[in-house]
Design a protein around this nucleic acid. Structure first.
Lengths: 219, 219
DNA sequence: TGAACTTTGTTTCTATCTTCACAAATAACT
DNA sequence: AGTTATTTGTGAAGATAGAAACAAAGTTCA
């Protein structure tokens, strides 16, 4: 039941980074222990769900006490591979892309945008928020060279598929897709879609059709 | 079973805007009919799931034929209230906020960012991408005045909760929250969280722990 | 030390969502 | 007109997720 190689539920996996971030906060505020009830209040996830989530990794807590913040943090750091840096490329330095370049992902994370690409001559050659911007023509070469595994795709949707094809060729493993395009990729490649206008639309749909209901979770 | 007031599954509701957008594309490309299999290929949702989703609204298709694009489009336009404009406020004109101001939501949608707020004196009083920027002090007054129901929250997480409290006071009904903060609101208010760094982290977790698996859907 | 309190881990139940698989209906073709 | 090919809509089964509830194990405090 507590097998290292066992697959945990996807829903649980999506919550892990949330738990991890909150534990970091607790740690830096000097807190030594925490209960599933406290965690629940903070991350807005039912306490039974949290205990269940944790239990997939074994018995991490102590009855009548709760969880030791340090122990949990160390455990999750290992589980989330926080010690191994994952190199990320940003494709498309438009408004949204620029937001990412200035967003400090590596603060709490093992994640760093190493390189960005765009076709705009005014941007190519510059360094934006610590990240060098290269021309899109160099995409294939650079991604392979740097061994980049993850791409954040913030290009116009018309070019999303051709660029994705090149990323696949260049051995990328995962794509965070912010374009409305639904991409065709071999299924060895994982894509997470974040579709801003769908998010807004569905929020509005819920407002109009599900009045005064419970909260919904994110992407 | 095909009751107008019946609540459809949340999972279905989240896919409706996706279907709607693709139908718009089909329509403008002149296509007259479409099958669930074609739709499936395009939006990457199992065809049985699509037929099931549609069936909550009644029998929209014809056996052996598929769906009439125009009919479907008209139906969804009504269902998604695309004729009634929803006013949206953008709170926090940083990098991410600016991206939204330049993102043309209203193109395919009934949604328009009407007004933006920030504390930066350099931004207050300007018009960014068609949207006037007001000082955060005017938030409460303006939101009530304009009858704004939805807010996109792109402020630093430290101020997310106090600003949310003010939005609640100003009778907002839904919030699209891009800050990492988990907001406390009365449960008459609907919040969708989009947590960019959690998205990136969980993508990476899946890459490392679920090699060569099926695709996952978005928020 | 012992009684009262706390909190986990898990068993069980329930809800929600997805997919299979196929009858029924229609379209297309000869 | 009749035969073959499509494609829907849905019953039934399966898969995944969420929450209640409680015994067991520990903590706290007098």
């Amino acid at each position: 039941m507590t097998n290292e190689t066992m697959k945990i539920p996807q829903a649980t996996a999506k919550r892990l980074p949330l738990y991890y971030r909150f534990l970091l906060n607790l740690h830096s505020s000097g807190k030594q222990r925490v209960s599933s009830a406290e965690l629940s209040e903070a991350v807005k996830v039912d306490s039974a769900t949290i205990r269940r989530d944790f239990s997939y990794f074994g018995a991490l807590g102590k009855k009548g006490y709760g969880y030791n913040v340090n122990y949990l943090l160390t455990f999750f750091r290992k589980t989330l591979d926080q010690d191994e840096l994952t190199k990320v490329a940003l494709i498309g330095v438009g408004n949204l892309g620029t937001a990412f370049l200035n967003y400090n992902f590596s603060k709490n994370n093992n994640t760093k945008i190493e390189i960005a690409f765009d076709v705009d001559a005014g941007k190519v050659g510059t360094v934006m928020g610590d990240v060098p911007v290269y021309h899109m023509d160099e995409l294939d070469k650079k991604v392979v060279e740097e061994g980049i595994q993850v791409a954040i795709l913030t290009v116009p949707s018309a070019v999303a598929q051709p660029i994705t094809d090149r990323l696949v060729q260049a051995n990328i493993k995962g794509i965070l897709n912010f374009t409305p395009a639904r991409l065709n990729v071999p299924n060895s490649i994982r894509i997470h879609h974040i579709d801003l206008s769908v998010e807004l639309q569905s929020l509005i749909y819920f407002l109009k059709h599900y009045p005064t209901d419970t909260e919904t979770e994110e992407a």
